[in-house]
């Protein structure tokens, strides 16, 4: 479980860093092309938008691994340790269900439905662009499992 987590962390963080850096260059290039070369580009704005959503989704998966998403903690902290443990486990379970049912299953159906639709300016399949939803959903599922495993191990020690 720990190796899976380490591997996922490495994979997703590298992906996000590269994508983010590329995004900065892409938008800078777009501004420059518009102002200095008088050659506006429709391609770059579309590409930037999709890279950005991919960054957001895969980055979100990464942050689920770190348990970094915002939550309201102060009520939970009022409970006993045992109840807190159950609530934490439940919280991971809800996250897993959402990622599995909505992002993975719903996402796959969305990808299949839109596979033959093409994006006008990028010339690629819309279904391919949407595939970030099920993929990041899968990563969140894996992270939730890893988090639940870690929780139960902490409980035992």
């Amino acid at each position: 479980m720990t190796t899976i987590r380490t591997l996922l962390n490495k994979l997703l963080s590298t992906f996000c860093i590269i994508l983010f850096a590329f995004l900065v260059l892409l938008v800078t290039w777009q501004v420059a092309s518009r102002y200095f070369f008088n050659a506006p580009s429709s391609f770059s704005e579309e590409l930037a938008k999709y890279c950005f959503v991919w960054l957001a989704l895969f980055g979100s998966a990464f942050v689920f691994g770190e348990k970094g998403h915002m939550a309201i903690e102060f009520l939970k902290e009022k409970f006993s340790k045992a109840t807190q443990y159950r609530l934490n486990l439940f919280s991971e379970l809800v996250t897993l269900l959402f990622a599995l049912i909505v992002m993975l299953i719903g996402g796959i159906q969305l990808v299949l439905m839109t596979w033959s639709q093409t994006s006008a300016s990028l010339g690629v399949s819309i279904g391919f662009l949407y595939s970030a939803v099920p993929l990041s959903g899968l990563f969140i599922v894996l992270y939730s499992l890893a988090n639940m495993y870690t929780l139960s191990k902490e409980k035992r020690t």
Binding site: N38, P40, S42, E45, E46, A120, S121
Partner: peptide, 10 residues
């Protein structure tokens, strides 16, 4: 030389 706003398509 005029920049004219258009709907995004090739």
């Amino acid at each position: 030389g005029m920049k004219i706003r258009i709907i995004d398509s090739d």
